[in-house]
């Protein structure tokens, strides 16, 4: 009831906020179009908006040529990211648990960091072939380091007071790790994962530039070399779309997993927990007050 009303308010609020932006864009487009058609800007450098819109229409609606490529690049990015993240987090957890492991692994991680991962593109293509494998591999290599560093930093920064409390309450090492260190590290881990996602996308696209048969990178290369700038920019837009899609998916996950950082989510989760608790053990008439008093 009140929820629906507040959401419609929010919608109206957003529309009101977005209106000036849209107006500005609408005012800029004809100026841009005019500047190109009068030869003020060369159309090879910056294509007129009409051409871009026509290309978008053609690529996305009329022919739909972009979709298979879009899906391929998306798959490569996600697969590479998943592998890179899995390896990075495993190594970070091992490094956090064992001082010795950290000492002997970190030099290699640092070497990997200062080497521009993109330099490996030709080598990775020689190793894994022209297909999706090489793109996944490059995405994984490139996304590894930011995730590793963030996860390790997160796992190593422990609040001294909380740790002392855990110890004094007789928590085991395992409990202290799982219930204290891991949750405390999660915000940083997610920050790393977000960076990793964008770098994974770069890795996949660059590998496609170098050598590939399908993917948005290939499409981009082809259109650019045909000097079809409108289609190039339309293709670039799909990369932006992948980037935004992945970023917001991760943001959503971040919000769900690290629920305690935002007040709204925290109260929702703690209320749900209190209700579950009450259903299980009974006896407490009001889970709401229970949640409130426990906070």
């Amino acid at each position: 009831m009140s929820d629906r009303r507040s959401s419609s308010y929010a919608l109206a609020y957003w529309a009101l906020r977005a209106l000036p932006h849209l107006l500005l864009l609408l005012a800029l487009l004809p100026v841009w179009e005019l500047a190109v058609s009068t030869g003020f800007i060369t159309s090879i450098l910056v294509p007129p908006p009409s051409e871009i819109i026509a290309s978008i229409w053609e690529l996305y609606v009329l022919d739909g040529t972009i979709y298979p490529h879009f899906l391929i690049t998306l798959t490569e990015t996600v697969a590479g990211f998943a592998i890179g993240a899995a390896v990075a987090i495993t190594l970070a957890v091992c490094s956090a648990l064992s001082e010795t492991f950290k000492r002997y692994v970190s030099p290699y991680a640092i070497v990997l960091n200062v080497t521009p991962g993109i330099a490996l593109t030709p080598v990775v293509i020689a190793w894994f072939g022209y297909g999706m494998g090489s793109k996944v591999a490059l995405a994984a290599i490139i996304s590894f380091f930011p995730i590793f560093v963030n996860a390790l930093t997160g796992l190593l920064q422990v609040d001294r007071d909380s740790e002392e409390m855990f110890r004094s309450l007789g928590a085991s090492d395992r409990q202290a790790f799982l219930k204290l260190r891991v949750p405390a590290s999660l915000p940083l881990v997610f920050a790393g994962l977000k960076i990793g996602l964008t770098t994974a996308l770069i890795g996949a696209v660059v590998a496609e530039f170098a050598q590939a048969t399908a993917g948005v990178g290939v499409l981009m290369n082809r259109f650019s070399f045909q000097l079809d700038m409108g289609s190039s920019i339309a293709t670039l837009l799909s990369m932006t779309l992948i980037g935004l899609l992945l970023f917001y998916a991760m943001e959503f996950l971040d919000d769900r997993v690290v629920f305690w950082r935002r007040e709204g989510r925290r109260s929702v989760v703690s209320r749900a927990r209190a209700r579950r608790w009450a259903a299980k053990f009974g006896g407490h008439e009001s889970p709401e007050t229970e949640a409130a008093s426990s906070k």
């Binding site: 696209v205 981009m220 920019i233 932006t240």
Partner: peptide, 14 residues
């Protein structure tokens, strides 16, 4: 959100 390096072919064409 756009991978900046992805603009490379475009710039080379331009």
């Amino acid at each position: 959100a756009t991978p900046r390096i992805a603009v490379a072919p475009l710039l080379i064409a331009a």
